[in-house]
């Protein structure tokens, strides 16, 4: 009964027989299998054994749920769902806190950058005053000269050799 015909492509044959038992063959394949079953006793024996093994699975019992399984499941799900809501709320609050912190940092950075810019801009007149100080200090003398070109000529001739020439 369990000895198979030598030379039979057993793997393909079994796969086909299982699909045949499961009703998963096309009409053509089904006709081919039935034709072979009619002619081939070994093929028939394989089919019978597969069917018998399948039928033995009926010995496995179906599991019945306990009376309170549904109730405890629904309760557990309700508790977990409440936890999920709580966790989602916390995540949302955290996200909001991060956004506020990020926004605050951005505002602080902007204010600082603005301060730097403004302070540099405000410093500008003072720096100009320092640069022009030598001229300012001797403005009365410079006023006696008729023009800047005249002063440049004097400078070229070395008249101010020992003078600081920042004012020019």
């Amino acid at each position: 009964m369990s000895e198979y015909e030598p030379g039979v492509d057993t793997d393909n044959a079994d796969e086909t027989l299982v699909a045949y038992l499961d009703g998963e063959l096309s009409a053509d394949e089904q006709v081919r299998v039935e034709r072979r079953l009619a002619d081939d006793p070994a093929f028939r024996a394989r089919l019978a054994q597969l069917q018998r093994a399948w039928d033995l699975l009926d010995a496995l019992e179906r599991t019945e749920a306990d009376d309170d399984f549904a109730r405890s499941t629904v309760e557990m799900v309700a508790v977990k769902a409440a936890d999920d809501v709580q966790a989602a709320r916390k995540r949302s609050q955290m996200r909001q806190a991060w956004l506020y912190a990020l926004g605050g940092s951005a505002v602080t950075a902007s204010l600082f950058a603005g301060y730097l810019l403004v302070s540099r801009w405000l410093d500008q007149p003072n720096r100009e005053l320092v640069r022009d100080l030598p001229v300012i200090e001797r403005i009365d003398e410079y006023r006696t000269a008729e023009s800047v070109d005249f002063l440049r000529e004097l400078h070229k001739e070395g008249l101010f050799a020992r003078e600081v020439d920042d004012g020019l």
Binding site: M1, S2, V18, A53, W54, L56, L57
Partner: peptide
């Protein structure tokens, strides 16, 4: 799936049929 079921049922046959016999 076809292959899985086929191999599963062949394995069952190999185990269960000798046992039944």
């Amino acid at each position: 799936v076809k292959s899985l079921l086929s191999r599963a049922r062949i394995s069952l046959r190999e185990i269960l049929i000798p046992y039944m016999e």
